[in-house]
């Protein structure tokens, strides 16, 4: 894969992102991929003068991940998307669609998980 890859953990992800922002990088996007039943891989992609830089965060699926949208506002959309499709929860989202960005309430499963996670067991606060 082109570009530099840095491994981060849940505690350092926001700090690293803020550091990258200070260095003058532009937020490109995030990608999410399932590793196995419990682990999930989240990649953050940044760009500066056509050079890419990636952060790799490997987490347990049910651990809430701190949102980077306070640092890069643009991240709120893709974080909502991952929330919809992978059942990962993001803490501190700028605009939280509460898992209704793409999917309606009647869709009960998270489509991108090979091991089905019920949407009902997720506990999204007071969603009507």
């Amino acid at each position: 894969m082109k570009g530099e890859m840095i491994s981060v953990s849940i505690d350092t992800v926001v700090g690293e992102t803020a550091k990258i922002k200070v260095e003058g990088y532009r937020f490109v996007t995030m990608s999410c991929a399932e590793l196995d039943q419990t682990m999930i891989d989240i990649l953050y992609h940044f760009d500066k003068d056509l050079e890419l830089k990636h952060l790799r965060l490997t987490v347990l699926r049910d651990t809430p991940v701190p949102s980077v949208s306070p640092v890069y506002f643009a991240a709120f959309l893709v974080e909502n998307e991952i929330q919809d499709l992978f059942a990962v929860r993001f803490k501190g989202l700028a605009i939280d669609y509460e898992r209704t960005l793409y999917l309606d309430e009647e869709v009960k499963v998270t489509p991108f998980c090979k091991y089905t996670v019920e949407k009902t067991g997720w506990g999204v606060g007071s969603k009507q």
Partner: peptide
């Protein structure tokens, strides 16, 4: 346009992620 492709040597791809320009322009 940004594509992230993850393959594992099988016929089907492990993950295909598409980030399109409008997605970046919505903010």
């Amino acid at each position: 346009c940004f594509y992230y492709i993850k393959a594992n040597g099988k016929k089907n791809l492990d993950r295909l992620r598409i980030r399109t320009p409008t997605f970046a322009n919505v903010p």
